[in-house]
């Protein structure tokens, strides 16, 4: 199919799509005129039922926890897919870019440490204030990526050895699924909330939400690190004294 034919087909299909989009969107209530019951009900009951102040967190890890389980495994299988797709590229030669400026490395080390603490905070208070395992996990992984950006692949690799990170990802995803079975045993339903709901507004609140929150954070952080690592590995050159697979020798 040539470019012209393809664009021609797209123009016809695009006009049809645009018409359907406009038709569908015009049927929605006006912006701000929300009148569906589900969100209102959750906003009413979640703070009392679960003692979480962040209702989004309660939806993700409790009321719709089963969806989040699926989401975790979407991420998990994507990481497996990426590492399979990039597996053979390991030994390809490409320029190894190393930061040599001391001020940049020092600033980067401080910034990475601060980012790591910020990530822990976003995870820990995810069900009290805005945040949560997904968001915090990505921030935590960002701290490791910052080590690569302001240091080099060597430092990054030393901080994120492959097998422990892989194990952490599996443990995070597995813990979420197993906590679901604990819900069957103690609360009567898969991913049921089986712990005491604690005090609203404190870290001890939300029942099993904090556990699922941390399991997610571990899984997301490890998954993002594995994604970065797989892409970075296609980009580093093995040198005489050091190889990504073996470390210094």
């Amino acid at each position: 199919m040539t470019r012209q034919i393809r664009l021609g087909v797209f123009t016809v299909a695009g006009c049809g799509l645009a018409a359907f989009l406009l038709w569908g969107l015009a049927g929605l209530p006006g912006f701000g005129h929300y009148h569906w019951p589900y969100g209102n009900v959750l906003n009413q009951v979640a703070p009392n039922e679960r003692h979480t102040s962040n209702v989004v967190g309660a939806v993700v890890f409790d009321y719709r926890g089963f969806d989040t389980l699926g989401e975790e495994f979407i991420l998990f299988s994507a990481v497996v897919g990426v590492s399979l797709l990039l597996r053979k590229d390991r030994e390809e030669a490409a320029p190894a870019d190393r930061v040599r400026s001391d001020p940049i490395m020092a600033t980067g080390a401080v910034a990475a440490a601060l980012l790591f603490v910020l990530g822990l905070w976003v995870v820990a208070f995810g069900y009290v204030t805005p945040g949560g395992g997904f968001q915090g996990g990505v921030v935590l992984a960002g701290a490791f990526l910052l080590v690569y950006l302001t240091g080099g692949y060597r430092e990054y690799h030393a901080l994120t050895p492959h097998s422990p990170v892989e194990m952490a990802e599996a443990i995070g995803a597995g813990a979420f699924a197993i906590l679901g079975f604990a819900g069957i045993a103690y609360a009567g339903s898969y991913l049921g909330n089986f712990l005491g709901i604690g005090d609203a507004g404190s870290l001890y609140s939300g029942g099993s939400i904090p556990l699922l929150n941390w399991a997610t954070a571990v899984e997301v952080c490890a998954a993002m690190i594995l994604l970065f690592s797989e892409f970075l590995k296609t980009y580093v050159i093995p040198t005489d004294d050091w190889r990504p697979e073996l470390g210094p020798r």
Binding site: Y34, W36, Y38, G39, N40, L42, N43, A46, V55, V56, A58, V59, V60, R64, D67, T68, E71, G132, F134, Q135
Partner: peptide
């Protein structure tokens, strides 16, 4: 407050 369900969906 706005609907928390669609915010959770956006996260997904």
């Amino acid at each position: 407050a706005v609907d928390p369900v669609v915010q959770a969906l956006t996260l997904t």
